[in-house]
Design a binder for these strands. Structure first.
Lengths: 244, 244
DNA sequence: GAGTGGTCTAGACCACTTC
DNA sequence: AAGTGGTCTAGACCACTCC
């Protein structure tokens, strides 16, 4: 005989999820404080937090650290099989994108850089860290490594737009193919701080490895997304034989 | 002045993550019980659980409900832009796949089915629920809706392999294109039970909408994956103009 | 029956935000 | 200064697994 009791934290979750779905709570609206919910539903604060964290992991609400819990807006669609820039994609879906430069620096290729980018040990590497916003809200942090030998002085150019465009226009570099990898993973302390979420909050980790005409890695990009921001959407056209 | 104190649950996380990385703990090895960890590190059990749940969300460990915590094996690569069947993909990566039929039934198109599949209200729909395993471990549950008018009697065929192959060989239906959508989301009670995880555990929700030659929806598939099982990996080849 | 994880309570202190 | 969320303790009971 299985346990059929529904725990309190899930009942509270259902109640709040219902309020959100029925738009009793609007996008970006603030929820009552944890202590208020605790009193209103006669539950311990720990239990209330369990319900809130459940809703957070479902992408229905988000939090601003030490400020409160808020209702999430709809997700941004992202098609990894297309080469649409973040800026264009956000605009196309009716929102306002923004890019902030967090830091830019010159590195020397480490063992790790050598392995992931094939750059010889000690060769120069540009590191650019940016934060991307949608409607004024930080949604992702990216660390961009660029093979500096191919594009000296890159960091002196305006970096708040498409890097691919800069590489093409100033250095004649064309990205011939890009490898995209991603999986759900929590945001660590640094990224979390930039995104104004608590360390360990759920996220989506995405890497992008871009090769030029000579099949050399030009750029290696690590993106740390808030998990509740995007929905991956792509279309596969079938040719000839297929299975499953 | 920001808070620079590292909370106890993150310190324990780091300790255990280190043990896993250095292979002090092997794949599928069982961790000490929560109470043992609690005693060994002089922390409250709630705090120990916070550390364990953090590691779980990172995909480093997984749990068997009420049995304990175990070290996760490496992820399975999955390329949504290709049409490789689950079975073939798992085998290609050196593991043993398996498919279990959970249920099969005949439905009548609801408003929701009408909206997602374009099937007229009241028309017949096949519903197939399957569970997929890797090396004997349940990794995903899928709900497959098929337009029954296009393939009467489908459910009488052997359903533990590729559906696409069945549709092609028995009904002459060819999938011309497939729309794939996905985002991180927790596993609800039912799916969680099939996957032997706790309700609300992190997961990846993936849908697949398949169209035939006449651009009709043949199949609508909802897949609920354990989050720690897969890594999405795809390659984008650039043609002509691109940006970012 | 002993041990495990799942849930829950009733407190507490702290860093930070808001006013 | 008051209120918020972030962390933590020391218990408790339960359903379930393992033996």
């Amino acid at each position: 005989m299985k346990d059929l009791h529904i725990p309190f934290y899930l009942r509270l979750r259902d109640k709040l999820a219902g309020d959100i779905e029925r738009s009793v709570l609007q996008h970006h609206a603030k929820l009552p404080s944890e202590r208020e919910l605790s009193k209103a539903y006669d539950l311990n604060r720990v239990t209330v937090r369990q319900a809130l964290m459940q809703l957070e992991s479902e992408g229905l609400i988000y939090r601003l650290i030490r400020r409160g819990w808020y209702v999430s807006p709809p997700r941004l669609f992202y098609d990894p099989s297309k080469n649409i820039s973040f800026m264009d994609n956000v605009r196309a879906q009716g929102h306002v994108p923004e890019t902030i430069i967090l830091s830019k620096s010159e590195l020397v290729a480490s063992v790790w850089t050598n392995r992931t980018m094939g750059i010889e040990l000690g060769a120069p590497v540009h590191l650019l860290r940016r934060c991307r916003m949608i409607d004024g809200r930080a949604v992702l942090v990216e660390h961009i490594h660029v093979n500096a030998k191919l594009c000296p002085g890159l960091l002196e150019l305006p970096l708040d737009c498409s890097l691919t465009a800069l590489l093409r226009e100033h250095y004649g570099i064309r990205i011939s193919r890009t490898r995209v990898n991603m999986y759900p993973a929590p945001l660590n302390g640094d990224q979390a701080a930039e995104l104004n979420v608590v360390a360990g909050a759920p996220g989506l980790f995405l890497t992008r490895t871009s090769y030029d005409q000579n099949d050399q890695v030009v750029e290696f990009d690590q993106e740390f997304w808030r998990h509740d921001i995007i929905e991956i959407a792509l279309e596969v056209v079938n040719n000839a034989v297929d299975s499953e």
